[in-house]
Amino acid sequence: MAPLDPVPTLRPSFWRNLWANAVFSPRTSLGFMRLDFVLGTIFIIPFTQMLFFAFTVQLGGGSAAAIQFVVVGNAVATVTYSSVFSVCQTTDSEKNQGTMEHLLVSPANRLALYLGRGLIPIGVSLATVTVALTYAAVVFHVPIAAADDPALAVSIVLTAFAMVGFGLVLGGVALYLRTSIILGNIFLFIGLLFSGANFPLTDLPAPLQAVGYGLPLTWGLAAIRAALSGASLGSLLRLWGILGFAIAISLLLAMALWDYFERRALSTGSIARF
């Protein structure tokens, strides 16, 4: 008889954990993930939001270029629904459903657990921006050259990852809050003001510009605008680098927050409840 392994491997693998969280979280803990919501987020919200701001600019006597500016800005800004608003609710839902305690005592790898929850929102975010930019080209006649497509694709993917990373950070903060809805909503809307979606960031006072530069949406928008305008590879690489940095920082920060509040929860037993 073969000797038994003295230390059986009880920890599920990183990839299994990642996949299980990716598959289950839309049905259990992520917000805004019912099929009708997902379809609405991809097909309806971008169109109506772009329309709203396009007509607002038209009323103000804005030029065709100004209208296209807000159309592209809002096409990208709508990604916040699926990335930030949806993802930050994940810890909230666990508390609400009473499953947080079980999660905190599980040996699951936290990076896999957290990152896995972001996978579907990343996919929805990619679809949202792609559909929104299609509206921009077809309905609002924003010129998108085929030659710019690869750069545009890279910019969209990095933006989706950066935004979901930001959502995970807020989710980490939400572990300590009674509800994440307010936090998610605030960041859902301030992007419209501070990210350069509706007017250049330089129009804002310097302190508010600084707030804008702290948002990943600002850099994602800059990268997508640069790709659309056929910017040089050098300037694109700089923006992609910043987005990559934002993704890494977001994940590290989310993990640190999760770790910190998890320790507090385990020591006091008071914040795992809703």
Binding site: V57, G60, N185, F189, L192, L193, N198, F199
Partner: peptide, 14 residues
């Protein structure tokens, strides 16, 4: 919160 932000965005656009 949202209306204040929309108001400021519109103010800036106008």
């Amino acid at each position: 919160i949202a209306p204040v932000i929309f108001g400021l965005v519109a103010f800036e656009i106008f």
